[in-house]
Simulated assay, not measured.
Amino acid sequence: MSSGSANRRGVALTDAQRIAWLRLIRSDNVGPSTFRDLINHFGSADAALAAIPEMSRRGGASRAIRIATVEEAERELDFARRFKAKLVGIGEPEYPPALRQIDGAPPLLAMKGDFSAALRPSLGVVGSRNSSISGSKIAAMFARDCGRAGYTITSGLARGIDTAAHRASLDTGTIAVLAGGLDQPYPPENIPLLGEITGGCGLAVSEMPFGWEPRARDFPRRNRIIAGISLGVVVIEAAQRSGSLITARMAGDFGRLVFAVPGSPLDPRCHGTNDLLKNGGIVTTSSQDILEALAPISQLDLFDAPSIKEPTEEGPSPLMQPLDESDRTRIAAALGPTPVEIDDIIRHTELPASTVYLVLLELDLAGRLHRHPGGMVSISMSA
């Protein structure tokens, strides 16, 4: 198994870059994909911040976009330092290397604890919050065995299966992915467990700002990070339409292995897991099933994954490309409520790809564009 801790690669952000990155990702209508596109187009977060007001206006924004201030970013960085945490950029050595590979990876992660846990190959373990005794025992067994084999165990700090997996891997390394800010763990009864994780050889991570209380819609975002960090995800006792199945689906979309533990057809907690097995999930009844399947993948060098990087030397930033207003109209008219691939927009409008991407970015900053899995986009009919 290759060891990330022995081969850290990446470029650390300067203090000024970290502030600019934080301002950009905390500004209105700037999500991870928009952040990446802005950096790719303008070359730096500073240049992107300067261009956002005009771009959102061109995209049809009904009001001025809110841009996070330097003071706000400095306050968050100061809070992180006092909280003994760090905001880590996607191109920095401490960033989980497998997470860099996914579409929409968080540009910045708040991280607290033993950073080396993020650099080892990881197995995600998820399942029912209302787990059975046997389900919790299985989760603990898999986490303990795979942890001893060199894998970090990643989960979501929830009750039930998550809790069992974290506890069983405290000594070998575990990552708790939070849906809210690092200072807003959920559920409250797992606050002591989180302290054990960050005080030992484990790690807590979140893409949300400090002080952010988790909402229902934040948990799928957390689940995507669990799936992205992990080389494979094992699902134990997942009901139909559960968050664990969302994690499993995302893992499959990211090209990760999806393991499922068979359960009784009479137990509603196992209906979703059994459905996974019908749809290609790997039948998993022992830790060895997981270790044998992960072995070839764990040898890959994940540090060669693409990431967002700014130029290391100062120079002129790319200028915003002037566009004909008719081009904007054609691209907006080509969009509708049904998600479409960007390549199809390029073919339909017969416009250069650079033009299409820039107009989509303007619409995104104006709050009119909707991004969907697989890089597809749509626009609301009222836009």
Score class of each variant (00 low, 15 high):
L302Q: 06
L170Q: 12
L87R: 11
Y357G: 02
S5T: 15
T273I: 07
R82I: 02
L300V: 05
L22A: 05
N40A: 15
W212Y: 09
F142S: 02
T338G: 00
P306G: 04
P188Y: 05
L194F: 09
A179L: 13
P373Q: 07
M1W: 01
G272I: 05
E196M: 05
I153M: 09
R18L: 15
G195K: 14
L300N: 02
S286W: 03
G135T: 00
R371N: 00
A143P: 07
G180T: 11
P214A: 15
Y151P: 07
P185A: 14
T34V: 15
H372V: 03
S378W: 09
M55N: 06
R58Q: 11
R217N: 13
A332D: 04
F259R: 00
G195D: 14
G156D: 13
Q184D: 03
E350M: 04
G315Y: 14
L369V: 05
G280D: 12
K86P: 02
S3V: 03
K309W: 02
S380T: 11
L360G: 08
P96G: 08
D304L: 10
F35T: 00
S382D: 13
L369M: 06
D275Q: 12
G232K: 10
A293T: 07
M141S: 09
D114F: 13
K278R: 15
L358R: 05
R100G: 02
V30E: 08
F35E: 01
I297C: 01
F83L: 14
V234N: 06
L363M: 13
T329M: 05
S136T: 07
R57L: 09
Y151V: 02
I236F: 08
W21H: 15
I191M: 04
S354R: 11
S317G: 05
P265L: 02
S286E: 10
G199W: 05
A48C: 12
Q17D: 14
F115N: 06
V70C: 03
M55W: 14
V11K: 06
L231D: 02
E54I: 07
M381R: 12
S132I: 00
H348F: 06
W212N: 06
G232Y: 11
A248P: 08
H271C: 04
L24N: 06
L277W: 06
D301P: 06
M141T: 08
A139C: 07
R167I: 10
M55D: 08
A16W: 03
A295V: 01
A216Y: 12
S128Q: 07
T174K: 10
R256C: 00
N7W: 07
I102N: 06
S264T: 11
C270H: 10
V359T: 13
V377P: 03
E237Q: 15
L182D: 02
I229Y: 12
A80R: 07
G173P: 03
G228T: 08
I345E: 03
R148F: 00
I236S: 04
I25C: 01
P96N: 08
M381E: 13
G10E: 11
A164W: 14
S317P: 12
N190I: 10
